[in-house]
């Protein structure tokens, strides 16, 4: 059981690291918010799942620890409802105010 918890939390950290790298290195507003919205939600869910399993394992599956496990599961449900909606909200706002998309063509340089 400990191995599962360690694997879950390190996968969560790996996805968080990927989110951070994506937010810094991707070229455009839309791609950056895509990385932030998806990676954020998934890594939060994995880390919280690992913590919830750890609490239940340490409490030897008693009533109180199952209650804590259910509360952490409900946090994951609300993060899955709220965080992608927030990403949709600001990408929509960016589209409405006219953010340009990045394309692969080289920009025309102005002659001095």
């Amino acid at each position: 059981m400990n191995i599962i918890i360690i694997v879950l939390i390190s996968l969560g950290l790996f996805f968080f690291f990927g989110t951070a790298v994506g937010m810094l290195r991707l070229p455009d507003f839309y791609t950056r918010s895509h990385a932030a919205g998806k990676g954020d939600t998934l890594s939060t869910a994995l880390i919280l799942l690992g913590c919830a399993l750890f609490i239940m394992h340490e409490g030897h599956y008693s009533g109180a620890s199952i209650l804590v496990f259910l509360k952490l599961m409900s946090i994951i449900v609300f993060v899955f409802i709220g965080s992608p909606t927030a990403s949709h909200a600001f990408i929509d706002a960016g589209y409405e105010t006219g953010e340009k998309q990045w394309s692969n063509k080289k920009q025309a340089k102005k002659k001095p």
Binding site: F78, G82, T85, H88, A89, T97
Partner: peptide, 22 residues
């Protein structure tokens, strides 16, 4: 300061309706 664009979004409305009672 920011151009005010009034538009309606179904996703935000439904998600807020789910979240607010909880």
């Amino acid at each position: 300061a920011v151009k005010h664009v009034a538009h309606d979004s179904l996703i935000i409305r439904v998600a807020s309706q789910i979240m607010v009672p909880f």
